[in-house]
Every structure is written in structure tokens, then in C-alpha cells.
Amino acid sequence: MAALGSFNRLFNFATNTCVKRILPTSTNKQYYLGLKLRQIEVAGYASHRQPIRYKLPWFKPKPSYQEEIPEEYEEKKEKAAADVINKINKQIATNQVGRLFAVIYLCGTQFKITENDVIAIEGHWPPQPGDQLNLEKVLLVGGKDFTLIGRPILNRELVSVNATIIQKTLSHTITRFRMKPRKQFKRINFTRIPRTMLRINSITINGDVDKKKEVEGLDRIY
């Protein structure tokens, strides 16, 4: 196979040089014989099955051409976005957002929470009852009329979600029964998973949306 490949390469090289010598005009079209041969093969049905995907299906392939964005369209869109953002900022400033909800990422799971919710986290987790937490991985915040979506998370300083640990306890006894038929194999195990309950104290949006601060992360300097 390797020999065949190398032969193919040599062949391509030879043909290409020949083509260049004899037909200089055709070189502008950037034909490559190997590619062409393969293309002819491709015309058959069998080889036209779906190619192996190296990328995830929701990632669009990069266009080979230069994308041109019409200026007028962009302006219109920007104006619409600015209008919406202004409205949201007005609501936030006048405290008319109503009850906020948020989607947070905590210990490997996502929770949709609002104020005064109670959530339970499974597994060993160090915080103790009475501890105040600031949940920083906020994926989404929404009010009655708007939703802010993080890509993947929102700015840590834009949204603050505060929570208190209220309980650390165990789950009910979970039975894990395994059996293989006709193999004389039976196991029964009992487990209790540690659970931590959290009360969400507040969800607040601090300051204007879409405004970038000059200096960020000052609260993190110790």
C-alpha cells in the first residue's frame, strides 16, 4: 500500500510537471491529477456515503471564501440590540426586574433556582451548615421580560448568587442488587449517599448589562 502511495505521488509529480510544460494556461485552474482521479472514483455510489466526521455536527465548517457582512444590516441589528439592552438596564436600575431565576452549575449538576429555593447536592462536599456561599458559575439569569445567557457562564461580577448551607445528611438506603442468571452470581450492596442542602438567599444583577469595567477581579485580590 505504501509503495502504491509513493508511486501515486511520483506519478502525480510527473504528470503535474508535464501538464505545466505543455499547457501553462491550464495550471491556473489548479487541477491536481491525484485529486481528479479520486473525484472520478467518487462519482460511484458506494464512495459517496457520509464521510467520517472529525468535527461535532453543530460546528459549521469554515467557509473558504471571505465573508462579507453588509454594513447596513449590521447597523440595524446593533441598534435593535442596543435598544433591548437599554430596556433591560432601565429595568435593573429602577428595580423592576421582578423575581429573578438563574441556572447554576454546582458540583457537576445544573440547577434552575430562584430566591428561597432549596436544593440538594449529592456526594462528599466540604462546606458545613451555616456557611455562606457565593455561587459563581451562573449559566443563565432571567427575569419576567429578559434572559441573560452566558457563553458558557456569565461574568462573575455581573451576577451574584448567594446561598447558605442548611443541612448535611444522608440519603435513604439505596439497594444495589446484581444478579447474573445461570452463573451463580448474586451480590447485594446497600449505600447511603451524603447530601448537602442549600438555601438560595439572593440572586442579584449588579450594574449594567453589556458594560465592560476597566478593571475586573478586584474582589479577588487578597
Binding site: 431565576f101 429555593d117 432549596v118 436544593i119 443541612q167 445528611t169 444522608l170 435513604h172 447511603r192 447530601r195
Partner: peptide, 15 residues
């Protein structure tokens, strides 16, 4: 007594 109660959901909300 946590183990005495089997939870349906790990989340409680009034809204």
C-alpha cells in the same frame, strides 16, 4: 432523620 425519607427530587421551589 435524612435516611428515613426517600426524596423524589433534589430541588424544592415555590415558584
Amino acid at each position: 432523620d435524612g435516611p428515613a425519607l426517600r426524596l423524589f427530587k433534589l430541588w424544592h421551589t415555590d415558584f
